[in-house]
Simulated assay, not measured.
Amino acid sequence: MALTEFGKVVRKARIDTGYTLLTMSKELKTTPAYLSGLETGLKKIPKNWVEKIEDFFKSKNHEIVNLQALADVSNETVTISDLPLQQQMLIAGFARSPFTAEELRRFADLLETINKNKE
């Protein structure tokens, strides 16, 4: 089974920190099959599990960037109901616009710059 982008990042982090599915699952009090399902996309990735996985790796001094965004892509959904109307409208407009790869890269760069300035 192919890994999702979320799964690739989590698997690399496991390998980098010396954990297997079994050892990580024991610490997170779940099964290796469940973690494998999250990595391969066979299971949707709940927000609380993104947080658990982030916390797990932070406790190992291995921070993962953009894990929630990778989970959203793997899940093929993004919840917008809790966002202000202006953001919902931007998301809808963005999703239906025929941007080129270069335009998308520029948007991503701009968003990254804006987010860095807020830190």
Results as ranks from 00 to 15, higher is better:
M1Y: 05
A2S: 13
F6V: 04
F6T: 02
K8P: 07
V10G: 00
R11I: 10
I15M: 09
D16E: 14
T17R: 11
T23V: 07
S25A: 12
S25N: 03
K29Q: 13
T30S: 04
T31E: 03
A33R: 14
L35K: 04
L38A: 08
T40Q: 00
G41R: 01
K44N: 01
K44T: 02
V50Q: 02
K52F: 09
E54M: 06
F56C: 06
F56P: 01
K58C: 11
K58P: 04
K60C: 04
N61E: 14
N61C: 08
H62T: 04
H62G: 01
H62F: 06
E63V: 13
V65L: 15
N66D: 05
L67I: 06
Q68C: 05
L70A: 03
L70H: 05
D72L: 05
V73C: 06
S74M: 01
N75V: 06
T79F: 15
T79W: 05
T79E: 10
S81R: 08
D82Q: 10
P84I: 01
L85E: 08
Q87I: 07
Q87P: 10
Q88I: 03
L90E: 11
G93V: 06
F94W: 06
R96W: 12
P98Q: 02
P98S: 02
E102R: 07
D109H: 13
D109S: 12
L111S: 07
E112Y: 13
E112G: 09
T113M: 15
T113E: 13
I114T: 13
I114F: 13
N115L: 15
K116M: 07
